[in-house]
C-alpha cells in the first residue's frame, strides 16, 4: 500500500462547511439508522464530503463530519485513514485510478503506466494545471476489458498507449470522451468475432422448457435402473424439506439402488425405499447397467425459481439442498429458466 499521509498544512483549507446538498444527503443517511446510532453514517458522509471538497478530504472536512455525527475527531480520522478510497491529499480534476493488478499487467498495463508517468509524473502528484493526478490501485473488477483505469467515477477500458494518450488529450482539452471500452466493443462482449450464443432461438423464448420435455419423454418408458427408482420413489405426499431429509445418518445404509445394481439384483420395491433416491448415495454407482444415453438425475439444488407442479403445494419453491430429486414434482437441469429469461407460466407453482 502506498504511503499515505495527511495533506500539509499549507494545502489545508481554512474551513469546511457542508453545502446544502451535502447536508441534505447527510440527513438522509443519518435517518437510515436508529437515534443515537448516527455514527453508522460516517462512511457515506465522508464520501460526500470528499465529493464536495473536490475529490479529497481536508482535515476540516473530517472534523466537520465528526461534529455532524457527534463523534470524536480521532474516530472519524481512523475511518478516513483506514480506507484508501478516501484521498487525504488534493487530487487532480481528473483523478485516475490505474489498475495495476495481474490481469491488467498481463494485458499491457505497464505501457499505460508509462504513459501516466510520462504525462503526469509520479503517483499522488497533481499536474501543474491541476488537471490530472493518478494512483495505482488494486483490481477494479474489469479484467475482461484489461487494461483499464478509473477516471473520477467512470471506467475506461481496453486501453492502449495510443488511445489512452488521446483520452487524456481529450480530457485536458475538455472534449467529450467515450466511457467504457475505448475500442468500441459493447460492454465485455468477445473482443473479436462473436462465435457463441448466436442461435436466434436462444432469444425468442422457444428454448424454455425443452430440456424437461425431452427428459420426460425419455424417462417415461424406463422401468429399470436408478432413474426408474428415482421416479418411482416419488412420495405420495410431498415431504416438507427438512434439514434432516436425505442425510445419510437418517436412513439405513445398505440398501441402495446402486448397491443392488452392483450385485445384479432387481431394483428394490420403490414403495419400501423412499430414501433410496438419495442422490448422495445414488451417484456413487460406477458400473452403470441402464442405458447410458438416458439422462442421469440431476442435483436437486437450484438457484432459480422452481417450475414445480401444482400437486405439491406445500413444497417450497426452491427445494433445499439434499432433497432427493425424486421428491420434487418436477426435475430441472437449470436450462429451462435462467434468471432474466421468461419463466414458463404453465409450470409455475403459484
Amino acid at each position: 500500500m502506498a504511503v499515505r499521509k495527511l495533506a500539509p498544512e499549507e494545502l489545508q483549507p481554512e474551513s469546511f462547511v457542508f453545502s446544502p446538498d451535502t447536508e441534505a444527503f447527510a440527513e438522509q443517511q443519518i435517518a437510515k439508522y436508529p437515534p443515537g446510532r448516527q455514527a453508522s453514517a460516517v462512511i457515506p458522509l465522508l464520501w460526500k464530503a470528499q465529493e464536495q471538497a473536490g475529490g479529497w478530504l481536508p482535515r476540516k472536512a473530517i472534523e466537520a463530519v465528526a461534529t455532524r455525527l457527534d463523534m470524536p475527531f480521532i474516530r472519524v480520522m481512523e475511518v478516513a485513514t483506514f480506507y484508501t478510497m478516501f484521498n487525504l491529499e488534493p487530487v487532480g480534476k481528473y483523478f485516475i485510478q490505474f489498475c495495476g493488478t495481474t490481469p491488467c499487467v498481463l494485458r499491457g498495463a505497464g505501457d499505460i503506466r508509462q504513459v501516466l508517468e510520462k504525462r503526469i509524473g509520479d503517483q499522488n502528484h497533481v499536474t501543474a494545471d491541476g488537471n490530472f493526478s493518478w494512483l495505482e490501485v488494486e483490481c477494479l473488477g474489469a479484467c475482461c476489458n484489461a487494461p483499464m483505469v478509473q477516471i473520477n467515477d467512470d471506467y475506461y477500458e481496453d486501453l492502449t498507449p495510443e488511445n489512452f494518450e488521446k483520452l487524456l488529450d481529450d480530457l485536458a482539452a475538455g472534449r467529450p470522451v467515450k466511457k467504457g471500452s475505448q475500442i468500441g466493443r459493447n460492454t465485455s462482449e468477445p473482443f473479436e468475432a462473436v462465435n457463441t450464443l448466436q442461435d436466434p432461438s436462444l432469444y425468442d423464448g422457444s428454448q424454455i422448457g425443452t430440456w424437461r420435455k425431452r427428459f420426460e419423454e425419455q424417462a417415461q418408458p424406463a422401468g429399470t435402473g436408478e432413474a426408474a427408482a428415482a421416479v418411482a420413489s416419488v412420495p405420495q405426499e410431498a415431504k416438507a424439506a427438512k434439514p434432516t431429509a436425505g442425510r445419510p445418518i437418517e436412513s439405513e445404509v445398505a440398501d441402495t439402488p446402486a448397491e443392488r445394481a452392483k450385485k445384479g439384483e432387481a431394483p428394490v420395491n420403490p414403495v419400501d425405499q423412499k430414501e433410496a433416491a438419495d442422490p448422495s448415495r445414488a451417484t456413487k454407482v460406477e458400473p452403470r447397467t441402464e442405458d447410458a444415453a438416458k439422462p442421469a438425475p440431476q442435483s436437486g439444488k437450484s438457484y432459480v425459481a422452481s417450475p414445480g407442479g401444482g400437486a405439491t403445494p406445500t413444497s417450497p419453491t426452491t427445494p433445499n439442498a439434499g432433497t432427493p430429486p425424486g421428491q420434487s414434482e418436477t426435475r430441472r437441469d437449470g436450462s429451462e429458466s435462467k434468471p432474466g429469461v421468461v419463466v414458463d407460466k404453465d409450470n409455475k407453482t403459484s
Binding site: V3, P72, E78, F82
Partner: peptide, 24 residues
C-alpha cells in the same frame, strides 16, 4: 476512550501501517 473518557487516542491507517497516535 472507556475509562478516562477522553477519546484522544486512536489507531490510524491500517494493516502493517497501523499507527497508534493522538489526534494530530
Amino acid at each position: 476512550a472507556e475509562v478516562a473518557g477522553v477519546p484522544d487516542m486512536g489507531a490510524l491507517w491500517r494493516g502493517e501501517d497501523m499507527e497508534i497516535t493522538s489526534y494530530l
